[in-house]
Amino acid sequence: MNIFRLAGDMTHLMSVLVLLLKIHTIKSCAGISLKTQELYALVFATRYLDIFTDFISVYNTIMKLIFLGSSFSIVWYMRRHKLVRRSYDKEQDTFRHFFLVLPCLLLALVMNEKFTFKEVMWAFSLYLEAVAILPQLVLLQRTKNIDNLTGQYVFLLGAYRAFYIFNWIYRYFTEPHYVHWITWISGLVQTLLYADFFYYYFNSWKNNVKLHLPA
């Protein structure tokens, strides 16, 4: 474990807590894409298949349980909770995420570390995580006023993978054999997708104006 990875995990945890806080306290999911939340639940479900078979550390297991539990409960809130579901703008959140899942699955069947079920699922979860934010970014472009919690949620979600890139660089130089192209390329693509969001988020923070993405 290095400081970059710990910072990344904590940032990721904070993004999930910010979202749960928003949904649980003000019972609203306005501006949040259910499609992205469903994709994240699928990412964690396919990435943590080995949660009960391969024990890495208490920290690792606890964090996996938190990410699994939070992502599925957020999907449940947005689909089932009578108050929360009312604030979900179904008309705007129309990204057909099936067109993200299928290419990632096909790519995982071709590009993986080993052609086994677990390895293909693991590669799939990495490719899917890289593009899972797209429905959310599209929704942000459509909804005019982005509330602070939603902006912070997306920012933290992007920042966590940026920290991970530093973690991979650090591990590459400190650990022999640490070469994992699938993880690195997926993580880089994922972070680049946030680039324009970061740009507008930073400007809105610098000029102290409401975050507003150009249509």
């Binding site: 990875r5 995990d9 990721h12 080995d50 391969d54 890495i56 550390s57 690792n60 964090m63 996996k64 990410f67 570390e113 693991w122 991970y164 973690n167 054999h177 070469v179 994992h180 993880t183």
Partner: peptide, 10 residues
């Protein structure tokens, strides 16, 4: 053979 990739990251 490269040491098998233990998935120790989240």
């Amino acid at each position: 053979e490269e040491c098998f990739h233990v998935k120790d990251e989240l």
